[in-house]
Design a protein around this nucleic acid. Sequence first.
DNA 1: GTGAAAGCGCTAACAC
DNA 2: GTGTTAGCGCTTTCAC
Lengths: 318, 318
Amino acid sequence: MGKTIVDIAKIANVSKSTVSRYLNNGYVSKEAQERIKQAIESENYEQNSFGRMLKLNRSFAIALCVPMISHPFFAKITEEIENCAYEFGYKLLVTDSDNNRAREEEFIRMVYKNQVDGIIFITHNKYECFDSSLPIVTIDRLFGDNVPCITSDNYNATYNAIKYLFEKGCHNIGFIGGRPLVNSEVLERYHAYLDACKDFGLQTYVSYGDFRHGEEYTHSNEFLHKYTNLDAVFATSDTFGFTIYRVATEMKYPQQLKIITYDGCMSDWIQNPAFTTIRQDLKSMAFKVVDTLIKRINKKQVESKIVVPTEFIIGETT
Amino acid sequence: MGKTIVDIAKIANVSKSTVSRYLNNGYVSKEAQERIKQAIESENYEQNSFGRMLKLNRSFAIALCVPMISHPFFAKITEEIENCAYEFGYKLLVTDSDNNRAREEEFIRMVYKNQVDGIIFITHNKYECFDSSLPIVTIDRLFGDNVPCITSDNYNATYNAIKYLFEKGCHNIGFIGGRPLVNSEVLERYHAYLDACKDFGLQTYVSYGDFRHGEEYTHSNEFLHKYTNLDAVFATSDTFGFTIYRVATEMKYPQQLKIITYDGCMSDWIQNPAFTTIRQDLKSMAFKVVDTLIKRINKKQVESKIVVPTEFIIGETT
DNA sequence: GTGAAAGCGCTAACAC
DNA sequence: GTGTTAGCGCTTTCAC
C-alpha cells in the first residue's frame, strides 16, 4: 500500500489537515510548506483519489458515449474531446454503444451512480427528456432546453453548398444520407437542400432513410442507378460521399458527377480524390462541449444551443 | 444526495452489513433478500462507487493510452478494447498522448495514483522498464518480460505477402513505412521483407524512417520518384498504402504498381480501390489485451508475448 | 444468518 | 496558521 496523508504529516511534523491544506492550496506557513514538500518527495507520495472522491463526491471524470468510435467522425471528435477534458483536469471515460439502447441506458446510469461527474451523449436513439439536473451535454441532438446541444451551422452551410453547385451550372443535384429518426440538428441539412432547390427552381433527388453505418455502398449504388441524370450529389457524410464516388467510378456514370460531403474529417487520411467538403470545426465543437459540461457540473448557467461555424473546402470533386 | 446503504437497511429492517452482503452475493436469508430487494427498488437506490472504491482500493477501470485516437488503426483498436472491457465489467479511460512524453508519463502515474486498476500502453517513445508489479500490457511494443505484449504475426504475414508478389511475377518490390525507434514487433515486417528479398534474389528498395502521421504523402512521393522501376510496394500501414496509390495515380507511374498494406482497418471505410491487405484481427487482439491485463490485475500468471494470426485479403491492388 | 464496529484516505468545519 | 474531530459510503472481520 502507498503512503497516506498521515505518513506525510508525521514526517513533516504537522497534522494531516495541514498536509491536506497544502495539497489543496490552503494557507500553510512557508516552513510547513517546505517540510511537507520534502516529505512528499522523499516518500514518493501520491494522493489517493478514492478518498478524495468519496469526500468530495466527485470523480473529476466525464464520460462520452458514441455510437461507433471507429467511425472517422466519432474518432476525431473523441480525440478532440479527450484533449479538452485533459486541459480542464478531467479524465475521459468512453463508451461505444454500438447504437445499442441497453448500453446507452447503462451509460446514463453511470452519472446517477456517481461514477462520473457528467456525460456527453451522442445517440441515434429516441429518449424522453432527461432529469434537468443531470450534467449532460450532446452534439447535434435536440433533447429539449435542459440538455445543451453543440452543433455546426448545418442549414447555412448546406444551403450555400447547393448554391455553389447551382452557380457552377448543376441542375440535377441529388441528396443522400442517413436520416436521423429523432429530433436532430442534422435534419437541417435536408431542409436546407429542399429550400435551396425550391429557391433555385431545381428538381429534388433524394435518398434519405434510416441507414446504418456500413450500408453506404448499397444505398449509393441504388441511388445512382435510380437517377442517372444527376450532375451533382450532396452527401451528408464523408462516408456517403466516398461510396458515391466509388459507385460513380465503377458504373462509369453517364456524366461527370460533382460531389460535396459534410464533415470533412476523412480528408485527414484520404486525399484521393480530395473532396469538396463542409468541414466541421471539431476542435471548437469539442471545446464548447467540454466547457459547457463543466459549467453544468459546477451549476453555472449555460446556453441551450451553441452553433459552431463550418468551413467550405473546395477540392477536386467539384 | 442519493440514498445510501443505511437508508435501505432501515427500510428493509436489517443492518447495513446485511444489505452489503446482499449486494455482494453474500449469504442472506430469503426473507431479508426480498425486503432488501423491494427497498432498493422503491428507493431507486444506486450503489455509490466512491465508497466501494475506497474500501476495496480498486476502481474497476482500466486506462488506454494511444498516440492518436483518430488514426484509423487506433480508433478501431480503442473500439474493440472498450467493448471487451465492458464485457469484463471494467470501464475504459482513454488518453490521447499525441506522442507527447509528458502526457504519457502522467498517464502512467494514474495507475500509481490508483485511479485505475491497470493500463494498456501504446507508445512510440522510449521508456525504461517498468516496475514489474505494475499492471500494464502493451501492443506490438517490447518493453521486456515484465510487460506482456500482444502482437500480430508480423514476420510470417509479411514474408508471405512478399512471396505472393514474387510468385505473381514482381521483381522490384519496394518497402515503405514509419520505422519504430524503439524495440517493436513491427520491425519484424521489415526483417521479413529483407529476408524474403534475399531468399528470392530480389533487390531491395526501402523508405523506412522516423516518419510522423500526416507525412505519408511526402514520403510516398519522394519514394516513387526516386525509384521508377518498381512493380510492387509493400506498405507497413493502410495510410502509407493509400498515399502510394495516390502518388502513383497522380504521376502516372510508368508501370502498373501492385500494392499490399498492413493493418486492413481502413477497408471498413474505403473500398476505392479495395486494397490487398494483411488484416490484423483487432477483435482477438483486443480480447487478449484486456484478458491479460485483468489477469495481471488479479495477480495471475500471464504469457509475456501473445501472437495473434492475421488474415491475407486479396483486393484489387494486386 | 445477522449486527456492531472499525476503518479505507481524504476534506472541512470548528476551535484555538 | 494549525490541530482536533467528524464523517463521506462502503466492506469485512468478529461475535453472537
